[in-house]
């Protein structure tokens, strides 16, 4: 799924973000930049949560103007609150198939397979509060897996996890992406995350999302703004 932002301008309160770039089908792209620069706004705008003031978003050439978030072929994972606390892990994952949770036996089999795949076998009856941070991330990924949308966007859902756990999650995300042939957009503060699974990086700063460039090239010789953000390494 090719993602095109054509002269896109998004508004979030008094903040404005412009984006004009294209992401090729099946790419894995990191989104980096200082806090408040517009990373989350970019993802929220693509997902349809923020209005486009100008320009538009196209997927495979088809414009998404006015398409509600639920009908867009994409899944966005938030930094937190990705699970409903009063639903079990299985129910939370099941929402990816049917929001009314009336699952057929076939649905249930698919759901359990997804839980197995993310490493939550046998934990379906638990509630989110009984899970570790890593397991909660896995449950959210299981739901994303079931939704099977061609664009997967992560707004730092692993920010609160330790380095080893985060690396595990990234590998899991990379695997899911590869299986589904989806395009991946992933916000991160860590160059290592980008290097690990994202060959391309979009730099977002001061309300502007720059076109994706090769991660290695960008990190080897960062522009001044990115250099300031990364600090001396």
């Amino acid at each position: 799924m090719t993602l095109d932002c054509e002269g896109l301008r998004l508004r979030n309160g008094s903040f404005e973000l412009t984006a004009d770039f294209s992401v090729p089908q099946g790419a894995s792209v990191a989104v980096m930049g200082p806090s408040g620069g517009g990373k989350s706004s970019l993802l929220a705008g693509l997902a349809g949560f923020l209005p486009a003031v100008a320009g538009r978003v196209c997927l495979n050439g088809a414009p998404l103007d006015g398409v509600p978030p639920g009908d867009r072929p994409m899944t966005l994972l938030f930094q937190e609150h990705n699970l409903f606390p009063h639903l079990t892990v299985a129910q939370n994952a099941g929402l990816g198939l049917r929001p009314d949770l009336k699952l057929s036996s076939e649905d249930k089999a698919r759901r359990d397979a997804a839980l197995d795949e993310v490493g939550l076998s046998g934990l379906g009856a638990r509630y989110p509060s009984d899970l570790s941070g890593g397991q909660r991330s896995r449950a959210a990924l299981a739901r994303a897996l079931l939704r099977d949308r061609p664009l997967l966007m992560l707004d730092e859902p692993f920010a609160a996890l330790g380095p080893a756990l985060r690396a595990d999650m990234l590998d899991l995300v990379a695997r899911i992406r590869a299986e589904q042939g989806a395009t991946l957009l992933m916000v991160t503060h860590h160059p290592a995350d980008a290097r690990r699974i994202a060959p391309l990086t979009i730099f977002v700063d001061e309300g502007r999302a720059h076109a994706p460039v090769e991660t290695e090239v960008l990190l080897a010789d960062p522009p001044p703004a990115l250099k300031r953000y990364l600090g001396e390494v």
């Binding site: 639920g70 938030f78 409903f84 929001p99």
Partner: peptide, 9 residues
Amino acid sequence: EHFRLARQL
């Protein structure tokens, strides 16, 4: 996030 999740789902 839950409202957004609801719309997304």
